[in-house]
């Protein structure tokens, strides 16, 4: 027996490793919370090094980008001169619109609503080492009052939600993640559905609509709906790019281009609390409902 095991030790070891890892895969695909908290603990340990590297990388990226921009500056200069003519003609029209806008703002009392939103600013210090899942680590954690389930936003729109925290860092699942499910609605037609990450590599979102024939069109703005566990209603998600039928034609799905540029998220805001019933903080450019 001993001789048999010794003779076949390599295949046996490999089979054992494969079996153990397969069981681990199967179990962790069902358990999410505990696995993520372990990852977050590691994130906290390495957060000083991550912050330093991210800072250095950012500075180097800016330097390289500036050199690259020199080649396009001349072409842009010509285009800008042409645009200047156009903008001058639009100036009069804009001044009228600005007046009307200020009146509407007053009516909506968005300024008043803003004071009730409690936000914490945080910096993205690292991303997930797995390309297939879209999470980032921010430099604020439970010490700053952040806990799992809180919405994370940017002035341009929704970024994602906190899925786990440590005292000094938190892991945020981006809207691009295949597991992110956000209750959403089309602003124009009020058609409701769920927005989630389309594919790991894609920077677009899928809007799965509930209705059989929703009146949804490319160019429509999509915001978070009130049927939402984590996100306040009315936060801008993105714009509809394409509408198509599902495989059997029962429902429709739309491709949504997120309003946030996920390649350039450096600073984000975590929504610690917001007043019930209000929808849109004034930092958002999205339309009111």
């Amino acid at each position: 027996m001993g001789g048999f095991i010794f003779r076949w030790r390599r295949p046996i070891i490999i089979l054992l490793v494969v079996a153990v890892v397969s069981v681990s895969l199967s179990v962790t695909s069902r358990l999410h919370g505990k696995v993520e908290s372990m990852s977050n603990a590691i994130g906290s340990l390495v957060s000083p090094a991550s912050s330093t590297l991210a800072y250095l990388g950012n500075k180097v990226g800016v330097g390289v980008g500036t050199i690259g921009e020199l080649f396009t500056l001349q072409r842009e200069n010509q285009q800008l001169k042409q645009q200047l003519l156009l903008y001058n003609s639009m100036k009069l029209e804009l001044s009228e619109l600005a007046e009307e806008n200020s009146q509407l703002r007053g009516l909506l009392q968005l300024k008043g609503a803003a004071s009730h939103w409690k936000l914490v600013t945080a910096t993205v210090i690292s991303r997930n080492p797995d390309t297939w899942f879209q999470t980032v680590v921010i430099n604020r954690g439970s010490d700053s009052g952040i806990h799992a389930g809180m919405a994370v936003i940017e002035p341009q729109g929704v970024v994602g939600r906190v899925i786990s925290t440590s005292p000094v860092s938190a892991t945020v699942m981006l809207l691009l993640d295949p597991d992110s499910g956000v209750g959403a609605e089309d602003v124009r037609s009020q058609a409701a559905g769920v927005v989630s990450g389309r594919a790991a590599i894609s920077d677009e979102l899928t809007f799965q609509l509930f209705a059989h024939h929703p009146n949804i069109q490319p160019g429509d703005a999509v915001v978070t709906s009130s049927y939402n566990q984590y996100y306040p209603a009315g936060l801008l998600i993105g714009e509809v790019a394409k509408v198509s039928k599902t495989a059997y034609g029962l429902t429709e799905t739309a491709v949504v281009v997120p309003s946030v540029n996920f390649n350039q998220i450096d600073n984000v805001m975590v929504v610690l609390s917001h007043p019930n019933g209000t929808s849109l903080p004034p930092i958002f450019g999205g339309g009111s409902r």
Partner: peptide
């Protein structure tokens, strides 16, 4: 472990 999602995907 760092990624915190599927333990075993990269290990295997």
């Amino acid at each position: 472990v760092w990624a915190g999602r599927l333990w075993g995907l990269n290990a295997l």
